[in-house]
């Protein structure tokens, strides 16, 4: 039997600490996901406007966030705001701000894509039926766009959960950092612990992300 060094998990509070780390990661990512979806839908709808000014501003915002690596954004918000404005944000707060900025940008582009993918004749037929603009969006366009949005946004949500592994760089001790701490603390007594601990981390991430995929599948089937 391969020695995975799993015995270190039963030492002291190690397993509890890992779960605590998972909770930190989930708390930050799910809170950000919730805010990002709401703001993203709003901005995505704005992006389909014909107004060139809003279009340009949103475009610049999207491209800026898309080009910047998340790690750079984290450093900018956590250390940069202290240097520039003297704000003393906690690591968690800085992480949520960055994840909301990032999630909103990507979500709004997904919403925009879903909205413009609805064929023109859907709008035109609704107009021919005499529906008002609000009615067209509410009854015809949004329900169809939402269905197209689900698989895309699941990708984004799971990606946001996994990217929390970067926030250890701004001093937030989440699941991956706890894992590294446990591995290093037992470097001498269980040199193989890295395999077992990372395997456990993998399983915990999976348990966290799997229900989201299941919900998405369920919704997709229900709204078909």
């Amino acid at each position: 039997m391969l020695d995975l060094g799993l015995e270190v998990l039963s030492k002291g509070n190690n397993m509890l600490r890992l779960l605590g780390g998972l909770w930190v990661a989930l708390k930050i990512s799910l809170l950000s996901v919730g805010i990002s979806i709401a703001l993203g839908i709003l901005l995505g709808a704005l992006m389909t406007w014909k107004n060139p000014v809003t279009k340009a501003i949103l475009r610049v915002y999207l491209e800026f966030i898309r080009i910047m690596p998340q790690l750079v954004l984290l450093f900018l918000v956590y250390f940069g705001t202290t240097k520039a404005f003297g704000w003393d944000l906690t690591g968690e707060m800085a992480a949520i701000i960055v994840f909301v900025l990032w999630g909103t940008a990507e979500m709004s582009d997904l919403v925009r894509g879903a909205l413009i993918s609805i064929p023109r004749h859907q709008y035109e037929s609704s107009e021919a039926l005499g529906l008002t603009r609000e009615q067209i969006y509410f009854y015809i366009i949004i329900p169809q766009a939402l269905r197209r949005l689900i698989p895309l946004s699941i990708n984004l949500i799971t990606r946001m959960i996994k990217t929390t592994s970067l926030i250890l760089m701004i001093g937030v001790v989440e699941i991956l950092k706890v894992a590294q701490q446990i591995i290093e603390a037992n470097r001498m007594s269980s040199p193989n612990a890295a395999f077992g601990i990372y395997l456990t981390v993998f399983i915990l991430y999976f348990i966290a992300c799997w229900p989201i995929s299941m919900i998405a599948k369920h919704l997709e089937r229900k709204w078909r």
Partner: peptide, 17 residues
Amino acid sequence: FSDKNPFGYVDENGEYQ
């Protein structure tokens, strides 16, 4: 450091050592 045994690390009870 919280993961550089034996200079700065966290033991199984979550205490820095």
